[in-house]
Each structure stands twice: as C-alpha cells, then as structure tokens.
Design a protein around this nucleic acid. Structure first.
Lengths: 246, 246
DNA sequence: CGTAAAATTGACGCTAATCAAGGTCCGTGG
DNA sequence: CCACGGACCTTGATTAGCGTCAATTTTACG
C-alpha cells in the first residue's frame, strides 16, 4: 500500500460527482470533507482490510475494482460483492463500532480516498447531510444484499449464475461489437464463490451457454452475446427452449 | 391497527433502556425523541408495512414479535428475520429514501413506537448521536445478514435449520424444566422459509431430532432439550455420532 | 518451450426437491 | 358431546440437481 498523498483537482471533482456520499453538499463542504481524507493507492492483490480487524478506516473507491470476501469458519470463501469507482468500503462497519465482517481485496490496481472513522464522525456531526448520504449508501447495499439472500434461498444454481453475470455486466460491462465485455479478471471459481456452488457446476453451465451462443470469451474474459437469453434463464422463463421440467 | 396514543412512563423507560437507538442520550433528549413518536398497537396477523410501499415511517418494537417477509417475483415467501422488543423496523429503509424491500407482519399482538421519517431526520440533525445509534443498529443487522448469506451459500439444509433454531432460541427462548421453550408460533413451513428449503425436509429433520431426544414439543411449540447437540450439528461437528461422510 | 494455473468433462453418489397419501390436532357447529 | 372440516404435520417413493473426485486439456506467462 503506497503512502498517503494529496489528491489533485481532477480526482476531487471525479469523486464528488460520482459518489452518493457527496450528494447535496456544497462545493465548499465537499472540499472540507476531502481535505480530511487521504488519497491512497492499493496494488493488485493487496487488501484494504481483513475480516476481523478493528474497523477504524472507511474508503471510497476512485479507480479499480475491489472484491469483498467472507471467510467461513471452515475456511471456505464467499464472494459477497464486487465494487468499482464511487462505491464505499467499510462505511457501515466503521460507523457501527464493529470489526470488519469481511475482507476487501483489490483485484486491480486501485486508488481510493480514506478517512479515519472518528474524523468522519466529526464531519458528520457538523454536516448531518453527510450522515444521511452515508445512510442512503447503506440502505441500497442492504436492500441489495437482501435481494441476493432471497435469490440464493429460492433459485437454482443456473439462475444464480445467470444473475451474478448480469449483475456484473450492469456494473462493469463495456460495449464491444460482439456484445458486452466483462473487462475484469473472473475465474469459474470466483463465480462459484459468488453463487454458493463449485467451479465444476459453473464450468458446465457456462460451456452450455457458450455452445448456445449466449456467451463468448476473449482470452479469459467473458463476453455477453445474447443478454436477453440470459435474462430469460435468470428469470426461469426459458422453459420454452428446453425440455419442460414440471 | 389501533389509532396512535400517548405512551405511559413505564413504556417510555422500557424503550429507552433496551433499545440501542437511545444509547448515550440524556434522559432529556430521550424524552424529546419519544414525544415526537407515536405509540401504536398492531393486532396479530396485521402488517406494519408491505414490501414495495413508500417508506415513510420507522418503528421500534415495544412488545410482541414481528416476522420480516420477502416475496419473490414467483410468489415464494422468504422469512428474513423475526424481531422482538427493542428492535427497529424500517430504520434503514426510511432513512435511505427507498421503498420497503420486505413486509413486516405481527405474529403476535404488538405495541410499538412510530416516527415519521422526516421527523426522525430532523431529530437526528439536532442530535447527531441519534443518527450514530441508528447507524450502529444498521451495522449489526448488516453484519448479521451477511453471516446468514454466508451460511445459506455454504451449509447444508440440516445445519441451516439447526442454526435457525439456535438463533430463535437465543432471541426468544424461555427456560423451562425440560430445557428451553420457543414460546412462539412457528410452523415447519416457517422454518423452511427461513432456511431456503421446503416443509418436507424440515419435518424429516425435526422428526429425526425428536427421536434422538434433541428437541421435544409442547402442543405446537418447540422445546430445545439438548442445545449442545444442536450446536454440534450446526457447526458440522456431529460426525462422531453419525456415519462418517467424507 | 515448459510449467503451473485454470478450465473441461465424465462418472458416481448423495442431498434435497417433489409428489402422493394418510395422519394428527384443533376449533366449530350440529 | 361428537362429528366434521381445515390446517398442519408425517412418511414413503421417486427423481432431478448438485457436489465430489479423477483424469485430461487448454491457456497464460515467464
């Protein structure tokens, strides 16, 4: 992890424009908040924080992608989410006086702004809108997690994998001639850990999709060719194509 | 739902003593906050709010138990949690400007305090500690949901049911001579909806446990006789008893 | 070009979902 | 008081889905 440094103006503008934390704050206030934070870089494979550590810092991602990982008692990994620019890390936790419940790993080289939790609390005391913005970020994350909980308790593996892909595409997809490219490192194992299954099932499912022309690949990266078909699978409405199962 | 009314003093003391929302607030401030809320009763089977409704009210439960239910697109129910006295309802959501992501049903006659979301925001602006207490409640709920997400993606059904029971016992268990009584209405279907399975599996599992003397029942209510055994099952450490499976 | 990591594919067995049939408990009304 | 109906529970049979292991192939990269 590189030492902290000052942000330049372009970076400041970027973060205030795209992060909910700065919603409805005057440029003046934004400047104060940013001055109390520290600019930092995290190399690929390094961690922002580890599960179980005392949560004393919170972050907002400027560049790069971060993987949120939970480790079970038995040592299994569960990938809770991927985050990109504008997302907050440890916001909920640092403000709740509990240890980080998961680890945050940079899957690419990342830059971020970091605040000490007490500094942020002090800022929120002075600027209640900042606290409400924090609450709003948390609310969305909470609703999203609840939806995923619902998915994993009611959907079959194939649907869960489809949904995971669609979610990633919505977050990180880039349009290319053949369709939408998921321009990020993403192994079968990763997808398995996101969907509560194993890499063998994911591999089988994706092979099937590739043969059906729904997805393709460029090097190790996934290309979504027929998004609508994947939506049908995700919604369990693809019965027409396959053998009826009820 | 009965009309709103004033709280009496005993009720006021109860809520300020047991709810995190009032932590580190002076009695004076507590009084102000409570005066801005409304006392209310909800009959068994009635709802505090429904999934999808605009979230304009937040609650703290005084008495009774509440079931949080999510409905999937396909119409399946998922029980996210049970809450009892001292817990908050809609706190996250009402402060985040998003619709309720689930429904809250009173499984017993309940009393609660309700605040309008804008009133609460105003109070939080004046008393930042109130906002931080809200954040702390949310933080615990978030960590708990993440843990359950982890469970459901890595554990087998029997372990999940064991964990669900243990969680309910910790929340609502009452000591009786034979063990710990779960003094609440709880059908096989309810347990199935909590653990992402169906009532048949739950019934089979609980029949097995009852034959092994781990649990018992009084009318329709569950009694936990050998909690330690259930913990072993929940932690997947009961291999000694059964046939080895690896 | 060689090695290690990642992905594929087949075989096998178990878990858990599903369907069907019947039983138990309870309140209600004849 | 007893018979009936409905909600809830139990149990068996069956099967699809999924996890696991093993063997092999492909891909990335030094």
């Amino acid at each position: 992890m590189l030492p902290y440094a000052r942000m330049n103006l372009a970076q400041q503008e970027k973060i205030t424009a795209q992060c909910v934390l700065f919603k409805d704050l005057s440029p003046e206030v934004c400047r104060i908040v940013l001055q109390n934070g520290r600019f930092m870089s995290v190399n690929q494979g390094e961690y922002f924080f580890h599960q179980g550590e005392t949560a004393d810092t919170l972050y907002v991602i400027l560049n790069g992608r971060v993987k949120l990982i939970q480790l079970t008692d038995a040592g299994q990994q569960v990938i809770v989410n991927y985050f990109g620019a504008g997302a907050g890390l440890g916001i909920i936790v640092a403000l709740s006086n509990i240890p980080y419940p998961l680890s945050a790993e940079a899957v690419e080289a990342c830059t971020a702004v970091a605040w000490n939790k007490d500094t942020m609390k002090q800022l929120m005391r002075q600027q209640p809108q900042l606290a409400f913005n924090g609450l709003e970020m948390i609310g969305h994350r909470f609703a999203q997690l609840q939806k995923r909980f619902q998915d994993i308790s009611t959907q079959r593996v194939e649907q869960r994998v489809a949904r995971a892909l669609l979610r990633l595409v919505r977050q990180f997809g880039k349009r290319i001639p053949q369709g939408v490219l998921l321009d990020m490192p993403l192994s079968r194992e990763d997808l398995a850990q996101m969907t509560g299954t194993n890499l063998y099932n994911v591999s089988r499912i994706m092979s099937k999709w590739e043969q059906a022309g729904i997805i393709g690949h460029d090097h190790r990266k996934v290309i979504l060719c027929k998004a609508h078909e994947l939506v049908l699978i995700a919604e369990d409405l693809d019965i027409l194509d396959r053998s009826p199962k009820k």
